[in-house]
Design a protein around this nucleic acid. Structure first.
Length: 433
RNA sequence: GGAAGGGUGGCUGAGUGGUUAAAGGCACCUGACUCGAAAUCAGGAGAUGGGGCAACCCAUCCGUAGGUUCGAAUCCUACCCCUUCCGCCA
């Protein structure tokens, strides 16, 4: 969340920065300031009353120690109503704080100064591209046709099992999916210095709030109910990304600065309800309710946040370079960024069968935004508590990588010739029907 | 799911209604002693919020949330988590 002190001191600057992205609203900031003022006003009064109560209570204690009971009783009577006044003001302050924070939790992260202005994906500048679009002597097929002819994914039966948007990988398809997970984890742990973790796939509400998924995007998550007990709804959720548990690993901790940077990578399935997206690109594997992903998470010192973002991007890019897949990198403009991010690069891989670029990785620095939400801090060299920068990036999402891979490496005879790094993982060089 | 025990600072561990300003110990930092170190001695050191130009001051924090009381780490209620044992189970 946004630092309340920053809002107090420079409300106009905060408004201006928020206005540059969707979700900016001056009235919200004004409301926050008003509630904050109410809170502090009540707090000042209630603290003075509590100081008085503490003082008198000590005097009563002293009197009772001296067996001066009548005097003690007189003082008790004197302070009897103090508790009621304190209770009222305590509630006033707590209510104002809760209302203030409810708004703050729904305000997005103001973009970093290096983020270009813009209103939609059309305004995202391409910052680099790698390789070239492959050329074919035939018309390249879509992954849907390839999956059916090579029996890699059984779309109909996936839908029979769980509904549309769920995939049943079969035969070499299942093997390729598993191979990609293994390849990605090996790459990031052995080559890029990440520590592998395997998180729970169901996470608490606090985790979702911590990363900024909640409260605003609650309709995008799958909620879990324990048994038939409806009262347990709202406690646990299927994770939409491994970022949710992994970024929260150190929530509410104060880390020594010597422990930073922390680099985690994790495989997990990702569950997304995609409410309201039904019918939009639902055919095939490009937009599904469950997909696999290897996620990268960094916890770093403030001053290293944006340099680390470049490293994170390079680590994710390496995946596509090793697999020989053409891609481009775009820098998201202010109007296209995710809620929690201060700066985001998207990596889009070329999918010949789609004749389009597919987003396979989103690399973001959330700056202090997530760390504040989860109250994660570190003690710097001067002994001062600071909020670290939290970064996350896909390294990479698998369903779309799968699509780009088979569409790029399809042959005239309908088979798929795999790139060399995958041979040992898949156990074959070529997938045939 | 059942039974018992337990959750106190970076760690350990006292504390069953009023100098808790949370004892003692360990680890840590500073100083003294020393050529230097060890040992010893002395001192220091938490978090959050609010106020003040500042030295500082005030409030809150003993798993969480309520309650009783002039006053709660301490008493009451609910919940969460941990340990051990039993049952069930991949």
């Amino acid at each position: 969340m946004i630092d309340i002190k920053w809002i107090r001191e420079q409300p106009d600057l905060v408004k201006q920065r928020l206005a540059s992205r969707h979700g900016g609203d001056d009235a919200q900031i004004d409301a926050v300031l008003q509630l904050d003022e109410q809170r502090r006003h009540a707090l000042k009064q209630v603290e003075d009353l509590k100081a008085l109560r503490n003082k008198v209570s000590k005097e009563i204690g002293a009197l009772m120690g001296q067996k001066k009971l009548p005097e003690a009783d007189a003082k008790k009577a004197e302070t009897r109503t103090l508790g009621d006044q304190i209770a009222v003001l305590d509630k006033t302050a707590a209510d104002a704080e809760a209302a203030r924070d409810a708004i703050l939790l729904r305000l997005p992260n103001p973009p970093h100064a290096s983020v270009p202005g813009g209103s939609s994906a059309a305004d995202n500048p391409e910052v680099k591209h790698w390789g070239a679009k492959p050329e074919f002597a035939f018309t390249p097929k879509s992954h849907v046709a390839l999956c059916e002819s090579l029996k890699l994914v059984d779309f109909a039966r996936g839908a029979k099992l769980s509904g549309s948007g769920f995939l049943l990988y079969t035969h070499w398809g299942a093997r390729l999916e598993r191979a990609l997970i293994q390849f990605l984890l090996d790459l990031h742990t052995a080559q890029h210095g990440y520590t592998e973790v395997a998180p729970p796939h169901i996470v608490s509400r606090d985790c979702m709030v911590g990363v900024g998924q909640f409260p605003k995007f609650e309709d995008q998550a799958y909620a879990v109910r324990e048994g038939a007990d409806d009262s347990t709804l709202g406690r646990l959720y299927l994770l939409p990304t491994a970022e949710a548990p992994v970024a929260n690993i150190h929530r509410e901790e104060i880390l020594p600065h010597t422990q930073l940077p922390i680099n985690y990578c994790a495989y997990s399935p990702c569950f997304r309800a995609e409410a309201g997206a039904a019918g939009v690109g639902t055919r095939g594997m490009i937009r599904v309710h469950q997909f696999d992903k290897v996620e990268l998470v960094k916890i770093v010192r403030q001053e290293e946040g944006y340099a680390e973002l470049e490293k994170l991007l390079a680590d994710a890019e390496k995946v596509l370079q090793l697999l020989g897949l053409h891609y481009r990198v775009v820098l998201l403009c202010t109007g296209d960024m995710g809620f929690a991010s201060a700066k985001t690069y998207d990596i889009e891989v070329w999918a010949p069968g789609q004749n389009a670029y597919l987003e396979v990785s989103s690399c973001s620095n959330t700056d202090e935004f997530q760390a504040r939400r989860m109250n994660l801090r570190y003690k710097d060299a001067q002994g001062v508590n600071q909020f670290p920068h939290l970064l996350n990036g896909s390294g990479t999402a698998l369903a779309r990588l799968f699509v780009a891979l088979i569409e790029t490496y399809q042959q005239a005879d309908g088979s798929v010739l795999l790139p060399e790094p995958l041979h040992k993982y898949v156990g074959t060089e070529r997938i045939t029907a």
